[in-house]
Amino acid sequence: MPDTGRLRWLWLLLAYLSIGMAALGVVVPGLPTTEFVLLAAWAASRSSPRLSAWLENHRLFGQLLRDWRNGGLIARRTKWVSALGMSAALGIMLLTVDHLPSILFAAIGMGIGAAWIWSRPERPKG
């Protein structure tokens, strides 16, 4: 059930910002897409049934959301795309960034994100 008043507008703003970040994540290596799509869907469900339905039926994001609602599933293809994107981003950082702590911090963050993504099931249980 959508929230009312000012809180609804904050959820709506968060949903649109998250959609924008997810769209960027489709083309920018290392920027997550899945997490932003999930956040956008959650915020939209609290603020805009219309936006929530649009996300559910979106050609790129819809299946991801349906899989997530069907038991926290993440498709193997999505896992591979994510891993390759993070690897590419880390490779770019290794070639362009001279600050080792920044590279290590990014690598640790990507490693944690990758471990979480790969820990998710790919198919419904049973």
Rank of each mutant, 00 (worst) to 15 (best):
M1I: 13
P2Q: 12
T4H: 11
T4C: 05
R6V: 12
L7M: 14
R8A: 11
W9A: 10
W9E: 15
L12Y: 06
L14D: 09
A15G: 10
G20R: 07
M21I: 11
A22P: 01
G25S: 08
V27T: 13
V27H: 06
G30R: 01
T33E: 04
T34S: 11
T34F: 01
F36Q: 02
A40M: 04
L51H: 06
L51D: 03
S52V: 03
A53V: 04
A53L: 14
A53K: 11
A53C: 06
W54Q: 10
N57R: 15
H58W: 03
H58S: 08
R59G: 05
G62V: 03
Q63D: 12
L64V: 00
L64R: 03
R66K: 15
D67W: 00
G71E: 05
G72E: 07
L73M: 07
R77W: 08
R77L: 14
R77K: 13
K79V: 02
W80P: 03
V81C: 05
V81I: 14
S82Q: 08
A83D: 07
L84H: 09
S87G: 15
A88N: 06
A89V: 10
G91A: 08
I92M: 13
M93W: 04
M93I: 10
L94E: 08
L95F: 09
V97Q: 12
P101I: 11
S102Y: 05
L104P: 02
A106N: 01
A107C: 04
G109N: 04
I112L: 13
G113D: 09
A114T: 14
W116C: 06
S119A: 15
S119L: 13
S119C: 10
R120M: 07
R120S: 04
E122C: 15
E122V: 15
